[in-house]
Nucleic acid binder design. Structure first.
Length: 480
RNA sequence: CGGGGCGUGGCUCAGCCUGGUAGAGCGCCUGGUUCGGGACCAGGAGGCCGGAGGUUCGAAUCCUCUCGCCCCGACCA
């Protein structure tokens, strides 16, 4: 047996992740461009599925797609004080164009609130123009110091929703609606359970009043912020003078929201389900749901096997691996690493008996089924796999969520956790939303992930740092 | 920015210390035998050794400069 090209999770989780990404043909480091990656066909196909699922939901909630320039005048970033402070360190700036130094440099967008603020102010005059519900699919650049494929790259693909409203309750409703959309796609499409919650004031988006997030748990117990939705209040409305005349004739600033998910979701997907054999894709995000590997020994077996394979492939919507010069064994390993949910084996024995062998990626179980039942069994298997993967992840999340009632306890649980070694937990503790408390947690490289919207624990308690009353426990963890 | 590592066929790397004109495995091409969990045999293609300068009769190897990438930390979707 050949040695696996994939490092075991147990041995080194971070290396395992890299191996799975590479072997699964999801992406590779660009190398010639610092911190950037090439998203390969299998990875891009997953992104296309996610885009489709998200976009459908955006449209269903009344949003329209549009597109803004990649370059933003540098001065725009400076108009919102918190915003510029938050993003300045990670900006890439264009200073020369057309062979000449520019009078005012352009920044390559790290996010588009500012340029959108500019246009919103042109487009909005009356309360009748509101709400404005827009979304943009785009790439952005943030000059991060440390990158990891999909999880944090210098350039990444995402969508950013931007909306403007005439009042705060309606804006907040939008913020929470989109957070629900993200949770829906994460849980029901990606089979990745998440915790919806509010970010602490210290962790909120630069320029927002409040940020909301969905947090997922990876197999090493680290948290991954999988999506964010921001209540921008009137901050950008004021910075960019986005005003409207109300029904009562008063001039008011709009209330804005922004929300986004990125190709980081793919990293989360991989670290939620994949195993030591490679990628595992939940059926609903798998670009190829089933592959048939034909097997034949003698030349005269070839015709009948291929004929049956092609016929079944058409019925099942499966892809037939017709590659020459690759043994069936090599093909099994190939599709296993690519995460295809179901692989069918079809050889002379099966052609003779009218059967086909169905193998399920996540459990590795094989079953021999009559060919006429293959379509039904495939559908049932894909459905079961989708459900099982979610439940498995949900159980892992539950099993690794623990309560703590003192800061010492929290630190003891999280102190030695690393991305490589794993052992991470979601520690639930009563903690007041105060930047000083965030700083204390950061002291041992953990963070308050969010304050859950729904309390699944024991309600109010005393803050473990200040002793003040707080309504419920927050999620503390080490994160990507 | 600090610490570490590395640039040599498509990939992973050896060769460098002790200069003599480039090698292995995998992959690729051709032919044949194979094929129910990573096949085998035979033949073959492919690299001026990241870049620039220097030392030398001669540099992948020694010296100087330079560019870039990866990993670990501080920043973050």
């Amino acid at each position: 047996m050949a040695e696996s090209p994939i490092t075991a999770r147990e041995k080194d989780f971070a290396t395992w992740y890299q191996d799975v990404v590479l072997q699964g043909d999801m992406a590779e480091p660009a190398e010639i461009v610092k911190g950037c990656m090439v998203i390969k066909p299998n990875g891009y196909a997953v992104w296309e599925v996610l885009q489709r699922e998200l976009d459908t939901r955006f449209k269903a909630t009344g949003h329209q797609n549009l597109y803004f320039p990649l370059l933003i005048p540098e001065s725009f970033l400076k108009k919102e004080a918190e915003h510029v402070e938050g993003f300045a360190p990670e900006l890439a700036v264009v200073t020369i164009a057309g062979g000449k130094e520019l009078e005012e440099p352009y920044v390559i967008r790290p996010t588009s609130e500012t340029i959108i603020g500019h246009f919103f102010s042109k487009w909005i005059q009356s309360y009748r123009d509101l709400p404005l519900l827009y979304n943009q699919w785009a790439n952005v650049i943030r000059w991060e110091l440390r990158t990891r494929m999909f999880l944090r790259t210098t350039e990444f693909l995402w969508q950013e929703g931007h909306t403007a409203h005439s009042n705060h309750p309606e804006a907040l409703e939008e913020v929470l609606r989109m957070l629900d959309v993200y949770a829906d796609v994460a849980e029901n499409i990606m089979a990745m359970p998440v915790i919806k919650g509010v970010k602490t004031r210290a962790e909120k988006f630069a320029g927002a009043n409040r940020s909301y997030s969905i947090e997922a748990m990876m197999q090493n117990g680290l948290a991954l912020q999988a999506g964010t939705s921001h209540d921008l209040g009137q901050n950008f409305g004021k910075a960019f003078d986005v005003t409207f005349q109300s029904k009562e004739g008063k001039l008011e600033h709009v209330w804005q929201t922004s929300w986004g998910v990125s190709t980081r979701l793919i990293g989360g997907l991989i670290m939620t389900h994949s195993d030591d054999k490679g990628l595992v894709l939940p059926p609903k995000v798998a670009p190829r749901k089933a592959v048939i590997v034909p097997i034949f020994r003698k030349e005269e077996e070839r015709g009948p096997v291929m004929e049956t394979a092609m016929k079944l492939a058409a019925e099942l919507g499966a892809f037939v691996d017709t590659r020459e010069g690759q043994s069936p064994g090599a093909k099994f390993f190939h599709w296993e690493r690519l995460g295809v949910p179901v692989v069918f084996e079809l050889g002379p024995r099966d052609v003779a008996s009218g059967n086909i062998v169905l193998k399920r990626r996540d459990t590795g179980t094989k079953e021999v089924i009559p060919q006429p039942e293959a379509a039904n069994r495939l559908a049932a298997t894909l459905e079961a796999m989708q459900t099982d993967l979610f439940n498995k992840a949900k159980n892992r999340l539950k099993a690794n969520t623990v309560l703590a009632n003192s800061i010492g306890e929290v630190q003891e649980i999280l102190n030695d956790v690393t991305a490589e070694k794993g052992g991470g937990k979601f520690v639930m503790a009563h903690l007041k939303d105060d930047p000083a408390n965030d700083a204390r947690i950061k002291g041992f490289k953990a963070s308050i992930r969010n304050i859950p919207l729904v309390d699944e624990f024991d309600g109010p308690g005393k803050c473990i740092l200040t002793g003040e009353d707080v309504s419920h426990r927050v999620v503390i963890a080490k994160a990507y």
